[in-house]
């Protein structure tokens, strides 16, 4: 179908955008890549009175490493991560993960922060933000607010952002060379949303795991970590038995969704396999 009517604003600055948001009194929506918002409007599931198109705000168009963080501005498209544009494990991690997000034409338009704002439980970027403890930088007329990932994700399609806030940037920690990552996702068709996926980042010192981050997505109403499995791996070498046990702990610690795509038990089983394979991939690097 076609989208319902709306008023259109194309601000040129962050200030103009947050002013328009405030003036719309909750009836306006930010239009970023449009790759999630426009389909829902075409389905008439969303009927915003006003769209505030941020695509012409040049101050949002940046992505660069700075002071130990990768700063990702709100106009950074998924496609920007397809070829590493800075050094180090984080660039390789992002280039690996982005291959699993939708398809080429959608990656041309969709934005990193748009995925974070949309907060689909099966969003790969939300999983990255959760696993690496990203910081979200939000602006409103009241000023700037920095939201840590642990407080940011609330539930399906719901975040800590208020209706007057524009997500201007996300910040990821730049990982030093002692970090290795592994990612594994299961879906029925290439580019579909995952039924389960896991992102693992391991800090290796003297052949042993010094720090472990294990994230799981597509399984609960938001991306989650596997704290028991993370704690279990500390000091281990990550041999096969360690990986199997960590994957078991991770899969027991979740409360999987039960929906038309997959029953909860199946998602739990898939998660065990996803975590184990992500660990294998991390340790094979």
């Amino acid at each position: 179908m076609k989208a319902p009517q709306f008023a259109y604003r194309a601000p040129r600055s962050i200030k103009e955008a947050v002013t328009a948001l405030a003036e719309s009194e909750g009836m306006g929506k930010i239009l970023a890549g449009g790759q999630s918002l426009v389909p829902t409007m075409n389905f008439r599931l969303a009927r915003p009175d006003m769209l505030i198109d941020i695509n012409r705000i040049s101050e949002l168009d940046f992505a660069r490493p700075e002071n130990g963080k990768l700063r990702i501005g709100a106009l950074t498209r998924h496609a920007a991560f397809e070829r590493p544009f800075f050094e180090g494990p984080l660039a390789r991690l992002l280039a690996d993960v982005v291959q699993h997000i939708a398809h080429v034409p959608i990656r041309t338009r969709g934005t990193f922060t748009g995925s974070l704002a949309h907060a689909d439980p099966a969003s790969e970027w939300c999983l990255v933000a959760c696993t690496l403890d990203a910081e979200m930088v939000a602006h409103s007329l009241e000023g700037e607010r920095i939201i840590p990932a642990a407080e940011y994700f609330v539930t399906t399609l719901t975040t800590a952002l208020t209706e007057n806030e524009l997500l201007v940037e996300a910040r990821l920690p730049l990982l030093d060379d002692s970090w290795k990552h592994g990612f594994c996702e299961f879906n029925r068709r290439a580019g579909d949303f995952a039924l389960s996926m896991s992102l693992v980042a391991l800090k290796i010192e003297n052949g042993r795991i010094a720090e472990a981050r294990i994230g799981i997505g597509g399984v609960e109403d938001k991306p989650v970590r596997a704290p028991d499995a993370e704690a279990y791996l500390i000091g281990k070498t990550g041999e096969a038995a360690d990986r199997v046990e960590a994957a078991r702990l991770a899969s027991e610690g979740i409360q999987p969704m039960d929906d038309m795509h997959a029953p909860a038990d199946y998602r739990r089983d898939l998660t065990r396999a996803m975590v184990r394979r992500a660990l294998e991939r991390a340790l094979a690097r």
Partner: peptide, 26 residues
């Protein structure tokens, strides 16, 4: 008309995009 089939794919500044997921004004 929701980004899945690709029949509407065109090039915008030489890059493939879904023309069903953009408004003309953009």
């Amino acid at each position: 008309e929701h980004g899945v089939c690709g029949a509407c794919t065109i090039l915008m500044d030489d890059k493939p995009v879904r023309s069903c997921l953009m408004f003309a004004v953009q």
